[in-house]
Amino acid sequence: MLHLIKLELKKGRFSAYVWGALIAYALIAAFMATLYLTEGTASEEPAFRNYEEMLRGIDTIVRATFIVYAAVLLAKLVVNEFKDKTISLLFAYPVSRKKIILAKLSMVFGWTFANVLLANAVVGGLLIAINARLGHMSDPLTAQILYEHGIFVLMQAFGAAGTCLLPLVIGLRKKSVATTVVSSILIVIIVCSNNGGFNLSSVVAVPVSLGLLGILGTFMSFRNIDRVDVG
């Protein structure tokens, strides 16, 4: 399996994706810092009043970003192989089709999971550091808050890693990159949009079950892959 993942990495220049992720980190950090500075607790209607709200805000943006990012990866790794017919090459190798697909999907799953965790840590840490200097938020940063948020992010990262597979189920039907990416954006709009301080994913059960649904959906769409005609 590791060998298959290595081969997938050989096919595309994935260093570009790592750079892309770093740029995404920077943009998220810049956006949150701007929010902090302009709509912080000093303004009349603050974007966040305490650490918990701030950290959750970061988490929401991070997940939204990396769910869409994952759709781009899935389009490249899976949809394009079907569209360009290179899949007929892959499926004529003495390698189980399921393993080939599983290698691709686990790459995207792992990538999303890791990035959601890392981006939360990096951007969260940065904003906490900024606040330590400027002190817009005065509530104490307790180990309790950090611990609870850590568990929350872990669940969300799992949810996002599963959810990000859902666009593939839709995009693969049409063998279309655009469909894959657009449906990921739709999912993000539904799951991550903020309605008066509330969004669907703030109830942890929602993203986690969406994540499970994503895993189940992809499992179902590749269940019969051994019997499917290609090319």
């Binding site: 290179t86 007929s88 004529a92 003495p94 189980s96 051994d226 019997r227």
Partner: peptide, 20 residues
Amino acid sequence: DGSIEHLKRIGHMIETPVFY
């Protein structure tokens, strides 16, 4: 369905060849 071992012994070019 799903037998793959024999594929090691086959070379092929079907229709227009596809590449990365």
